[in-house]
Design a protein around this nucleic acid. Sequence first.
DNA 1: TGCGGCAACTCATCAGACAAGTCAATGCAG
DNA 2: CTGCATTGACTTGTCTGATGAGTTGCCGCA
Lengths: 260, 260
Amino acid sequence: MAREDERTRNAPSARLYRHVIDVLRAEIEGAVLRPGDRLPSEKRLVERFNVSRLTIREAVIGLEILGLVEPRHGSGVFVRSNRVTQAAQAGSLDIGPVELIEARRIVEVQTAALAALEATDEQIAAMRDILADMDKEERAEGSAEWIADRVFHLAIARASQNAVLAMMVEAMWDLRRRSPLSHEMLERIARAGQTPRIADHHRILEAIEKRDPAAARRAMRAHLDRVMADLLDFTELEAKERVSTEIAHRRETARRRAAL
Amino acid sequence: MAREDERTRNAPSARLYRHVIDVLRAEIEGAVLRPGDRLPSEKRLVERFNVSRLTIREAVIGLEILGLVEPRHGSGVFVRSNRVTQAAQAGSLDIGPVELIEARRIVEVQTAALAALEATDEQIAAMRDILADMDKEERAEGSAEWIADRVFHLAIARASQNAVLAMMVEAMWDLRRRSPLSHEMLERIARAGQTPRIADHHRILEAIEKRDPAAARRAMRAHLDRVMADLLDFTELEAKERVSTEIAHRRETARRRAAL
DNA sequence: TGCGGCAACTCATCAGACAAGTCAATGCAG
DNA sequence: CTGCATTGACTTGTCTGATGAGTTGCCGCA
């Protein structure tokens, strides 16, 4: 009961190895230590950080689990290269929007088909109302459009008559809201996107009304594929920008090294 | 290529703390240790695993970085609670086992296919270990077989390299445990079932090892279809029994009333 | 020159010690 | 009897020193 309060009160864990991890991580990510490089030996790190070898060891293990580093017995500790695996290996705290859409596609395509089979007349009527509201709101202010979006998709999930699937869909939308990364990005895309989401939604509802699972599945898939495509376009644009700054940075590094 | 095999085969080269992490992680994810619980003290873990306290400490740090656990100085190491699971807990309706299997079928069939595409060699090796443990445990005591089951399916979900899907799968297994209805029923079926789950699991892993998404999808689908079939058989049987006891009860009541 | 073997260096693990934080039971003062 | 301070057992955090085992490079020998 009071357990939760205690936990929140528990101040920032001031464990020593945390500090060492933070510093080394910064150096790895800041390209001071580059992939393939060997970290200074434990002995030297002891001198540098003024802590015992144990603490250094703990920090190295932390970095290993984060996927940043790979100790080799008898040889040294080496910086890992693959960025993708390192993100996957760490218990990635923030959820990527691509993952989210991919997961939604898997679950919601099926819920749409099930809903076409099993939705009650009341549920279909409710969906119709929601869509009508969305039409109206779109003309008014698009500030919180995603809320209506969420409600619509949740209504479909509930109409699948499977409480577990409904929970999953709800959880995924919650995830989106909780993850700053995903939420902001998807929000911006939705705002800027030319995607006729409303038309997508109408097509989905239409298929459900006709009790046509195949059509419902198709419509939902098309919808989420479009969202994903928008997302990837957007990501690509952003990535290109990042790449050019990255390359600029590498060029600078090479110049400095050549000057020696 | 042959090096990969050597490395995976080379079990002793795996650091000790890895093993401790794997076991404790399995217990946390298998819900032997539940959120808020305190882990055994380092001293007791030393005795249990027959390693030094240093190794235990390293494992605890690993679990901490994975976000599974939270050490509190002077008090103990506590299991953290999962966010998605908590959300699911809020809507505390009881979940039917049929719904659960249906939802799992939708999600896990796809995670298996994705895992066949994207699993790292380490992840595949881990799955192999889990299956080997299951083989051993099956011969010993079948008390907590479902824990290994859960861990295996979770490993696949994680190998899909989609954190959202992994969360969903984890949440569904938590749902199962939390729902007395589902848990007990599925447990009994597993115990009594003639289903060669082990063989199913081996087929799934084999497909993933071969990097064959279609086969993985097929194997997982077959597996869950079998579980579903067992469940339905069992439900039918139980329903029939209930009917006969019901009728027996009515007969008794009628007799008593007639005796008046 | 070529190669085996040795030595130095690395990580991996163990054992024991002490500091510091937590928590509950105990005992004393009011 | 109640409330509060103390104490003591238990826990994690950190340090020290020692041994084992794998890697690597150098040196001397053939």
